[in-house]
Design a protein around this nucleic acid. Structure first.
Lengths: 118, 118
DNA sequence: GCACTAGTTCCAGATTCCCGAACCATGGGA
DNA sequence: TCCCATGGTTCGGGAATCTGGAACTAGTGC
């Protein structure tokens, strides 16, 4: 089990964030992590509409979000807790997250949410 | 030669725009179209840094941008002119384009530019 | 008609994505 | 202590997507 990577926002190019959030499932996961403040991986499973996302896909989605600097994952015993890194992203790319989250909200796929709070 | 498609912004989900701009080449192309106001496909070829992008790839990139509602392409004789659809995008997804363009600018990959002007 | 330019389409190889199966790590019981 | 359940990761292979060269089309001028 290799350790969880958390690159600095300085090392993350814009396209990594765009690519991570260009997938509706990942975007939904991230929005949930953002609004809830903290989410365990499997807890997210049940909540993404009625579709069931396989564990391996979920795990991979979390990895993509993590390596795009969007979330921070910590192992707590047997489970992993995921926290948003909104403030850091906002500091590096002001307005980016807000624009994206609002876009999903405008498309009726996310609750309208204040972005920068963690 | 099939006709050029220009879907309404209402039919374009946020992920299509994110996906289109998640590619650095496409983003550079779009930023050039945006700042210049209008760009022919082959003119963009020479200007993307020192790398040479094959015509077929360019053509495909333009198609992706077009189908993401980001540009409007018109045939004028032998050449195609591409115009940005910033206003429409902004109306549908406020702040999205600005966030993305500023992010590329913050990463030193685009000139800082005012977004909504066409 | 012919040649030239601008761009598109086709297709095959490379790359990436998806997800089931197998695996690992931790925290309880019995 | 040994086992098992839980929560997650890794592996591997088929599907889907991306890339770019070659061939093609469409317009323009001679």
């Amino acid at each position: 089990m290799r350790p969880l990577l958390h690159p600095s926002l300085d090392d993350i190019p814009p396209e990594a964030i765009l690519h991570a959030l260009a997938d509706p499932d990942r975007a939904a996961m991230f929005i949930k992590i953002m609004t809830d403040g903290c989410v365990g991986a499997c807890s997210a499973l049940s909540s993404l509409g009625d579709r069931v996302i396989p564990k391996s896909s979920l795990s991979n989605h979390f990895k993509v979000l993590r390596e795009a600097g969007l979330i921070r994952s910590e192992r707590h015993g047997v489970e992993v807790r995921n926290h948003p890194r909104c403030k850091e992203v906002e500091a590096r790319y002001p307005g980016l997250l807000e624009g994206i989250i609002n876009a999903y909200a405008a498309a009726g796929r996310a609750p309208a949410a204040t972005v920068v709070e963690e």
